[in-house]
């Protein structure tokens, strides 16, 4: 069913990570992403893995959810591994055949690179699993607010309003699509069998009503916003004020200490 489709894939539980200020969460996780690349030996990367594991546990999001994410990028992961395995040629040669040469250096490089990719995915998944889409857009708008000093204030607001509206209407559209599919199915429409052309044609009875109702809904929404005197971001205050709490400061300190350790490990090994 379409309903199983997760977009934004927020996982609703109460955890320390969930309760962090979304602005801090975005910045801290971006810092972690950057440090995944800065860590350039196995000791530093090992610390990185340990840290991310701790974050995963604290987030209370089941490991199976993270695995689901990894499954999607499995082809990319395999590709990275193979590329590094064959491309890097230093250290002891373990196996040689025609142009293929497998070396110790190649193996360690490919393990290293795939660990990096896995970490990247898990870190970004942590953000989406622990932050509602609305919090995300609010945080992005706030983070971009310095742009108003160069005259881009309203552009930032417009972008974030568009994102909020788009996110808000995804579930509505999914529901609507499902309803239309069901209604056409009830009239005997068949979406599951037939040749490619027939299947493409079968989509028309869904697409047209969906398009029409989306346009209608957009007009309605614009009118509703206008009749509430909406005029863009000027002097607008937030209904949901973001406040910095102790947890945000503590986690920032933890991340800073962690980053210093990574740099230290990089230098000493």
């Amino acid at each position: 069913m379409i309903k199983d489709l997760t977009i934004g894939q927020y996982y609703p539980v109460n955890s320390l990570i969930h309760s962090l200020d979304p602005r801090f969460k975005i910045v801290l996780l971006v810092v972690l992403l950057v440090f995944t690349f800065i860590a350039d030996n196995f000791f530093a990367l090992g610390l990185m893995v340990a840290f991310v594991l701790v974050v995963m546990v604290i987030s209370k999001v089941p490991f199976s959810m993270y695995l689901k994410n990894l499954k999607i990028i499995l082809p990319i992961l395999i590709f990275t591994m193979l590329l590094n395995l064959f491309y890097v040629a230093d250290g002891v040669v373990l196996y040689e055949f025609w142009v293929i040469k497998i070396t110790v250096g190649g193996i360690s490089r490919s393990v290293f690179m795939s660990l990096r990719v896995i970490l990247l995915i898990i870190i970004s998944a942590t953000l989406t699993y622990t932050t509602t889409p609305n919090d995300l857009t609010t945080a992005i708008e706030r983070l971009c607010s310095p742009l108003r000093f160069i005259g881009l204030g309203s552009a930032v607001h417009t972008m974030s309003m568009m994102m909020t509206i788009a996110l808000r209407f995804i579930p509505t559209l999914v529901e609507e699509t499902e309803k239309i599919i069901n209604a056409q199915k009830a009239r005997g429409a068949d979406f599951e069998s037939g040749k490619l052309m027939q299947r493409v044609k079968a989509i028309i009875p869904i697409l047209i009503p969906l398009l029409i109702s989306s346009v209608r809904r957009a007009y309605d929404l614009a009118e509703a916003m206008e009749s509430r005197c909406y005029n863009g971001g000027k002097n607008k205050t937030m209904m949901k004020q973001l406040k910095i709490k102790n947890g945000d400061i503590i986690s920032t300190i933890v991340v800073i200490i962690f980053c210093c350790s990574i740099i230290t490990l990089n230098i000493f090994f």
């Binding site: 239309i180 069901n182 009239r187 009875p205 009503p209």
Partner: peptide, 25 residues
């Protein structure tokens, strides 16, 4: 089965074609 607000499921060019959709199927 006639769904709620069934008018939002109309899609074809003419009323004739729309009514004929079920029988055609």
């Amino acid at each position: 089965l006639v769904f709620q607000y069934p008018e939002y499921q109309l899609f074809d060019e003419t009323v004739y074609d729309d009514i004929a959709f079920g029988p055609k199927n």
